[in-house]
Amino acid sequence: MFKTSLLGGSERDFPNSEFRSPPSSDYGNSNFYELLQQKYPHLVPDFSAFARQSGVSMPNKDWERNMLTGTTILAMKYKNGVFIAGDRQAVEGFQVGERRIEKVYTTDEYSAIAVAGVAGPCIEMAKLLQIQLEYHEKQEGVILSLEGKANFLSGLLRSNLSAALVGLVVVPIFAGYDLNRKIGRIFKYDITGGRYEEVDYYATGSGGKDARGTLKKRYRPNMERDEGVKAVLEAIWDAADEDLATGGPDLIRDIYPTVKTISSSGIEDVSDSEIKQVYESLIDALKE
């Protein structure tokens, strides 16, 4: 069979390789991460190996000053499913490192991941999760169950453990609509890959505690969408108010937090104009 290693894998014998039937030993495996490990080890985003090789065994202060961190990410259930949201700012030490960074990623039609921690590994993990879910869907013709998606993310986190121990931390929230059970669901994780399901809402990151405070007061079961959007945006506002590393709405540069809704009809972005409107009326209310 032809070698996909045309791209620089270990086997470079195409096109002289003979066609064999059955075509290739990995036919039938729909795990993209395993494919990378087995055939394209140079493409595995292995921050753990990096940590081991560099001989660092403790969180390194010099690194931390040069890495993009800081965040508030959250998820909350509502009548039709679940919200997932995050602010847009990243910091390097006490400096603003990035004003428009994206922390909430659509992973497929019915799920999304929000990431807190060190930006590099976070974004790489979100990208890998998205590719894995799509890869599985295309190879097998069926979408993974929400449980399956959440468990796969556990595995990615476990493989990042030794990197996390030296400070390259990824702390995600994974949320989605469970097509089998017809409900929105929220999963939080620790650095060991431990997976814990939340019943109604959750927030994490440097401003997570403040956001949780707001959600605790605002959350009610079976909220309508518009009311939910307000609660979510107010939580991010409060987090940005208390936490230096969380960015609120930037009305001058037109940068707004990301909010997505996930329901039985799929995933949708809440538009910037709607978010702007909510914040304008929130600011008016605060001035009074």
Partner: peptide, 9 residues
């Protein structure tokens, strides 16, 4: 199958 794999990689 190999097409999906090659393009994703």
């Amino acid at each position: 199958y190999q097409g999906v794999q090659a393009t994703e990689i």
